Amino acid sequence: MALKRPSFLPSLDELEQQAQSRSSQRGRPGSHFDHPTAKALFVAVLAVTVIAHVVGGIVFLVLGH
């Protein structure tokens, strides 16, 4: 007895067509972020890292001598 695919699920042909259309769509040139939250998080972490290194360098110079 073969199981029938539920009607609410897309067929394999539909899934393949969706995958091809997604792969043909490219993001903006130079953009590596598809999600704005990911970009914001990356920028925030990058800023905190740079600030921490600058503050650490200043502390190292002041207390190192």
Rank of each mutant, 00 (worst) to 15 (best):
Q18A: 11
T49V: 13
S7D: 15
K39M: 14
G56P: 00
L3S: 11
S21G: 05
Q25W: 06
Q20R: 15
P10F: 01
P6F: 08
Q18N: 04
V43S: 07
L63G: 01
R26N: 14
R28A: 11
F42G: 02
V62D: 00
A40P: 01
V54E: 07
P10W: 01
A2T: 11
L46F: 10
A47F: 11
T49H: 06
E16Q: 03
P29R: 10
F60N: 12
A19C: 07
G27V: 05
P29K: 08
D34M: 07
L12P: 07
V62C: 02
Q17T: 07
G64V: 02
R28G: 08
L41D: 15
R5Y: 06
A44T: 06
G64Q: 00
R22C: 05
V45K: 05
V54K: 03
V59R: 05
Q17N: 05
E14W: 08
V50W: 09
E14R: 09
L15N: 04
A38W: 10
L3W: 09
V45N: 01
M1P: 13
G57W: 04
V48Y: 01
H53T: 11
V48S: 09
L12I: 14
V45W: 06
R26C: 04
L63V: 12
V59Q: 04
K4E: 15
K39T: 08
V43D: 08
S31P: 07
P36C: 07
E14A: 13
L3Y: 08
F33A: 08
K39G: 10
S11N: 05
S11I: 08
G30A: 04
V50D: 09
Q20F: 08
Q25L: 15
V45R: 01
G27S: 09
K4R: 09
A52W: 06
L61S: 14
R22P: 02
P29L: 15
F8R: 06
A52V: 12
G57Y: 03
M1K: 08
A44I: 13
E16T: 15
S11M: 06
V62P: 00
I51K: 00
P36Y: 03
Q20E: 13
P29I: 12
I51T: 12
A44W: 01
Q25I: 15
R26S: 13
K39P: 03
D13S: 01
S21L: 13
P29A: 13
E14H: 06
S7R: 10
S24C: 02
V48N: 03
V55I: 15
G30Y: 02
L15A: 04
V48E: 03
L61A: 15
S11Y: 03
E14S: 12
G27I: 02
D13C: 00
Q20S: 07
H35T: 11
P36I: 06
H32Q: 12
H65A: 12
L3E: 12
T49W: 09
L61Y: 10
A2W: 05
F33E: 04
L3H: 06
A40D: 04
